[in-house]
């Protein structure tokens, strides 16, 4: 290729990369400009720490998102608490313990699980999981934080497995060889050398999982019950995402209610950005040269 052609090609690549960055900046600008005014109007403290969300009350609406925020955090943390150990062990199995054929088969199935649309997960949760919880735990209704946690755990499992397996596969064989040479068995080596050595990649998998769980709306909407209670494990909850999804259509354009929902969008955005930044920050502090 000619020099000019070479330069043009590289310019196109740069512009494409720039477009992605520009979109993110636009998104950030949008959320800041649309989300901040309502928070100022409601008051930071009342908005973030207010325990009552009652936006439909025309006379005296209350815009405290603490129940939604906590439900989102609990939901994501609970899902991660279930999916991360399961996902890590699955990844370890795939990356090290499994015979090649079995690994390929399980990997394919995990990918299939990743491809199940969120609304289908919700549907199964609604028709199978929720009635089961109601019967089994003898609840008035099975729609609950617990149901949301279980559905979210299933949904974030595939990306956690996939990312963790990549991280484990990237661990140099020399580390494991050193461990074997010291008289370690395979399991001892995998748990004490391979997993820790994959540290930052594993952390990225965890963060991605939590980020996905925080951001998921559709499936959760179908199983969580959607009452804006302060969250309890077996009670009905509303999350940040489901709050927006449920109410936005009912909020009058330009009303404080609609703008408060945009502010929830800002909070979600910040949460997800934080989750994504976490592994990078940890890596920088990790002290590996």
């Amino acid at each position: 290729m000619s020099r000019a052609g070479e330069r043009a090609a590289q310019a196109v690549l740069f512009l494409c990369a720039l477009a992605a960055v520009a979109l993110l900046l636009l998104l950030t600008a949008f959320f800041l400009s649309s989300g901040l005014p309502a928070i100022r109007e409601i008051g930071w403290k009342e908005f973030l720490l207010g325990r009552v969300w009652d936006s439909a009350d025309r006379a005296a609406p209350q815009f405290g998102i603490l129940p939604l925020l906590l439900a989102s955090i609990y939901g994501a943390a609970g899902a991660a608490a279930l999916a991360v150990p399961l996902g890590l062990l699955t990844a370890l199995f795939l990356a090290r313990a499994a015979p090649k054929g079995v690994a390929a088969c399980v990997r394919q199935l995990v990918r299939l699980l990743a491809g199940v649309p969120s609304v289908v997960c919700g549907l199964v949760g609604m028709t199978v999981l929720v009635p089961f919880l109601r019967e089994w735990l003898d609840l008035p209704a099975g729609d609950s934080l617990l149901a949301a946690v279980l559905v979210l755990a299933v949904m974030i499992l595939p990306p956690v497995v996939e990312l963790a397996e990549d991280a484990l596969a990237a661990v140099p064989a020399a580390y494991e060889e050193a461990s074997f040479a010291l008289g370690a068995t395979e399991t001892e080596t995998w748990f004490q050398v391979t997993l820790p050595a994959a540290g930052s990649g594993v952390l990225a998998a965890v963060a991605l999982g939590i980020g996905r769980a925080v951001g998921e709306a559709m499936a959760v909407l179908m199983v969580a019950g959607n009452v804006a209670n302060m969250p309890t494990l077996l009670g009905s909850v509303r999350l940040l995402t489901t709050g927006i999804a449920m109410e936005f259509g009912y909020a009058a354009a330009g009303s404080l209610r609609q703008r408060a929902l945009l502010s929830i969008g800002l909070v979600l955005f910040v949460l997800v950005v934080l989750m994504n930044a976490l592994p990078h920050l940890a890596r920088r502090k990790g002290g590996r040269p």
């Binding site: 020399a174 580390y175 060889e177 050193a178 461990s179 040479a181 008289g183 068995t185 820790p196 050595a197």
Partner: peptide
């Protein structure tokens, strides 16, 4: 084999310390 390797140690061509 693990017990054998405990009694017969090995140093490799390239240093292979753990990231610890």
């Amino acid at each position: 084999v693990a017990a054998l390797r405990r009694r017969i140690g090995m140093v490799f061509q390239k240093p292979n310390l753990f990231p610890m």
